[in-house]
Design a protein around this nucleic acid. Structure first.
Lengths: 342, 342
DNA sequence: GGGCTGTGCGGGAGCGCTCTCACGGTGCAC
DNA sequence: GTGCACCGTGAGAGCGCTCCCGCACAGCCC
């Protein structure tokens, strides 16, 4: 009443019902595509809706259905740099596309710090969303607990740290990394370094584990001075490469745990006068678009994103529909893509 | 009732009221921090809330208040590459930070195509959000119309194409570009090219206009063959630079309408054997983090992001609060940042 | 023709919350 | 002592929707 003047008061079901000469219930049936409506009633309602430009009020609907038809993709990343990681962009795009021809909405939520994480937790608990896809989980992340406790359906993109009962979709990071380093070994490299991801992220940990496993399997030793921690950014990759070269100028190969970091490493190697792949072979991880564009094009481990994103939404939807089924998880295979850098 | 078993039925205001021995209204007052509650009642309610782990149902609240306390940041971009533009990341981070100590929530909505834009339009009209900040508007974008018509408070990041009555915050793109090219002229450059942004975006159009204005003001001629359209991405910048060099190998300066494109241009120039700034001077636009990291560091036009993001939210909030005040807009000053590239 | 099933439709309760209004109680001025 | 303002509180209406239930009517079988 008070703000009739400021905003066009949107018409309600009742008004549509009056105009169409039917009851509220019938309008509701038409709006929700119920089959038990006569063609005449349906037509009358349709034209009334068009005339009044009726748009259902989702809050009112949600209040009774306990559904909001929106799911949240939570991007949990303090480092803005990482926010522009092509991997994220791909996931967002993929999930969005998967949802495009459903009537589900997708919202992105970002958290830079603990305070914002708490805010997101509250947002989810208050019933704004039907479920959550959680990306970029760090080891000290409170969100999985908050959401699990609140009973919000949840799928994590990436294996959780502890082996908790939560649904997740992940690439076979360990296997991929193992294949990468095995490839370097098979092509005759001797001093194989690695630039890891952040070790408070499971992808960082698993890729390092895979790298070490490949060395061990080949009877090589694991040298701590040939391991440098990166942060999945290009700058971080360059810094890590410099530090590695300083520690062992004789290294002849490096497995880099993400393509953006590998691009940074390529730059650092060039700056240090090393030729790739002649002097130093480089293998990346992700098979991001940048891997084909850089010089030389990057040999890398492909993540099956086209499998992962539909799976992510599928597992979440199943959890939303399902009546307390146990959370299901999936690990997707990775594959070596050979280009010029190794 | 039906899903008592599947999800923990969250407690309602009534249950809290019963436990605290007060009425629903009093609980509501406590929850909403109304001052007119006795300390005893407040304490009783607080402890009942804690005991029951009560979380207010936002849908029910929104139904009566007509407020959702969430605003949407719409990222309207078909090109995934652009999605990872540092400029976007900065805006998202800035708006998010501005909102951090309010009780407003921020959701990001992305649209890759017209279908998704319509979906976002529907989402906003259905009352999910109190207002919208619209980024990356292209000339044929339906969203401003959809939202304006629905009466959803709206602030655009960037001037609208037609001079419609919509609030916006923009950098002085024209002035910035003019300063950039004026700087190239002042430092003795003769054949000054430009790599423009997409010309279906106002930032692209305005920066080109500023560039041309500077040439004209200095009595120079505008040469169409010295203008190449980019897409605000690094790859696009590199391609445009190559095409420019092919058209006029003698060019000695280039104003590039965004830093990521300028980085691409730098790469193309290096590949073509040109030294920067000796052979070709380069000025970028944005003053993104990458401008300080590239080789050579980029002379560029700084956008006052620290001014723009608070302004964006401020204008939107004023519109949400305000009773039909005319939409206000702001243009923020840009400044030349001199580094090594020009 | 009586009983039955099925179909289209409307009445009405109720989702969880806010907010207006009215009420009793207290404190103060006259 | 009366009048008045004011404060804390509760009852109740209602936000716009869904969905259960029951009614009227048609069509069918025996």
């Amino acid at each position: 009443m008070t703000d009739m003047s400021t905003r066009p008061a949107s018409p309600t079901l009742d008004e549509v019902a009056v105009l169409a000469g039917v009851s509220r219930a019938t309008v509701s049936r038409v709006v929700n595509d119920s089959p038990r409506v006569s063609p005449e009633a349906r037509a009358a309602v349709r034209s009334a809706i068009a005339e009044l430009r009726y748009v259902p009020n989702r809050m009112a609907r949600s209040l009774v259905t306990r559904r909001t038809d929106t799911i949240a993709l939570v991007l949990n990343e303090p480092n803005t740099q990482v926010f522009s990681d092509p991997f994220f962009a791909s996931i967002v795009r993929g999930v969005s596309a998967t949802l495009a021809d459903t009537d589900l909405n997708l919202v992105l939520l970002t958290a830079q710090d603990e305070r914002e994480q708490q805010k997101i937790g509250r947002y989810a608990r208050q019933g704004h969303v039907d479920g959550v896809i959680l990306m970029s989980v760090h080891s000290n992340d409170p969100l999985p607990d908050i959401l699990a406790e609140a009973g919000v359906p949840l799928v994590m993109c990436g294996r959780p740290f502890d082996d908790r009962a939560v649904a997740y979709v992940d690439a076979d990071n360990r296997g991929g990394a193992e294949a990468a380093t095995a490839h370097l070994i098979a092509t005759g490299r001797n001093r194989i370094a690695t630039i890891t991801g952040p070790l408070d992220m499971i992808a960082g940990v698993d890729r390092l584990a895979g790298h070490r496993a490949a060395l061990t399997a080949a009877g090589r030793q694991v040298h701590p001075e040939l391991e440098a921690e990166g942060d999945f950014t290009e700058v971080g990759g360059a810094r890590a490469m410099e530090s590695l070269l300083a520690r062992d100028p004789e290294l002849d190969a490096v497995f880099v745990a993400s393509d953006p970091m590998a691009v940074g490493a390529l730059g650092a190697l060039r700056a240090a006068g090393r030729r790739v792949p002649q002097d130093v072979a480089v293998v990346g991880f992700d098979d991001a678009a940048v891997a084909t564009r850089c010089d030389p094009p990057l040999t890398t481990i492909a993540q099956p994103l086209t499998d992962m994103t539909p799976l992510l939404t599928e597992l979440l939807l199943r959890q939303i529909e399902g009546v307390g089924e146990p959370a299901e998880s999936r690990v997707c295979h990775t594959s070596l893509v050979r280009r010029a850098s190794a």
